[in-house]
Every structure is written in C-alpha cells, then in structure tokens.
Amino acid sequence: MELYSPEGLRIDGRRWNEIRNFECRINTHPNSSDGSSYIEQGNTKVICVVQGPMEPALRSQANSNEATLEVNLSVANFSTTERKKRSKSEKRMVQLKTTLERTFQQSVMCNLYPRTLIRIDLHVLSQDGGMLAACTNAMTLALIDAGVSMYDYVAAMTAGLHDQTPLLDMNGLEENDMSTLTIGVIGKSEKLSLLMLEDKIPLDRLESVLAIAIAGSHKIRDLMDSEVRRHGNIRSSKLAS
C-alpha cells in the first residue's frame, strides 16, 4: 500500500497540504440541549451536545470561583469497520476526556459562571482519523451555540510525517501507519492550547509539521466561523420579520 505516491498524491487523492471535506452544522438539537453541533471531517463524524451553564447535581461539582466543565465522550460501537464494544473507563478514553476538559477550562471564560456546571456530551459516530481534533472542533461550535463566553475559537487539526513530507489532516489509514500530531490552536494566533503526539518523529522535522498543522487549524477556524455567521444571519432575519 502506497501512502504517498512519487507524484505527490495520497491514498485518497489529496495533495500533502489539503484537508478533507469539512462539514459543520450548529444548533442541530435545539429542543434537547442548550447548544449542539455536528461535524464531519472526512469520514470522522461527531455530534456534540452542551447542557448548561446549570446548577450542578452534586455539591462537590460546584466551584465558587469558576464553572466546572464535564465532558462525556462516547464512541459508538459501530464507529469503525469492525464492530467493537468500547468502555468509557478505558485509559485512552479517560485521557482524551481529561485532555478536552482541561483544554476548554482555559478557553472558556469559566470565571463568569461560578458555581455552575457545563456538561458536554460528545458522540463519535464514525472514526476515520483525527478523532480528538474533530471532538475539539465540535465542542467549540456547540459551546458557541450555547452562548457560553469563550476567548476565541479552539480549532484543532492533525498532521503527520511521511518520510520527509509533512501531510495535513490524516485519515484513518494514514494515522495507523504514521506518527500523528494533533494540535489545537486558539483563534488566528499561533498559540497552542492542545498538543498530542503519540509516535516518533525526528526533532528537526517538528517545525514543518507544526507549521502546516497551524495553517490547517486556521482554515478550519474560518470554516467554522462562516457556519456560525450563516446560522447567526438566519436567526437575526427571523427575529427581524
């Protein structure tokens, strides 16, 4: 199997610096939640539903200084080609969940909502690489839809390294074979709020991989922004009439 052909084409026909088809919708579940979103990054599909800020059920969850974020990550049994039951207490899941919670604890203006709980439920319907990135993007959109104050968008993207060439937005096949870097960028800056690299990559190549991943994140941020604005315009035109 050839992941990157000499002509510069990848397994799904993209060039090295192209992202997959990115579709996003916000306010997908207006009746059951305060904020919701749906994201497709290639074949990775994630639904995110936000409840809150609300009064926490447990006293222990109330923090008198800032809001508590609670993320529930559930990966559907049918999300991969091989059907597999996944437990929420798996170490990998706990790590992803904690990573998301801690990332957003900083990007959301939690100090504005003391003694409240913001519950975020993520449902991964289909996995094809870049699950953490898709979850981050879905969470950003759903929180925006819920009207929770944030400093800026957190846009996440993956990038990998094939031999000497950095590849943007890895799909599942590529992710299995190459080392993948996931980053989350705040708005249009070069500030990284999320960082995850799980396999070996030469130190001297880090810069090029990081650069393309940041550029990709900025692109994703623009795409998410245009969806938020499109939705905003529909709403405001309804209000006007």
Binding site: Q95, T98, T99, E101, R102, T103, F104, Q105, Q106, L181, I186, S189, E190, K191, L192, S193, L194, L195, M196, L197, E198, D199, K200, I201, P202, L203, D204, L206, E207, L210, A211, I214
Partner: peptide
C-alpha cells in the same frame, strides 16, 4: 537520537509554537 517520541499538553494556558520548538 533526536527523535521526538511524545508531546503531551493536557490543557493549561496555551503556549506559542515558537516556544515549543
């Protein structure tokens, strides 16, 4: 061997890419 094996940042304030490098 100058190989980067893992980078892991779990939340906290963001850092800029240059600082990371």
């Amino acid at each position: 061997n100058r190989e980067l094996i893992q980078l892991s940042k779990n939340g906290g304030i963001p850092i800029s890419a240059n600082v990371l490098l």
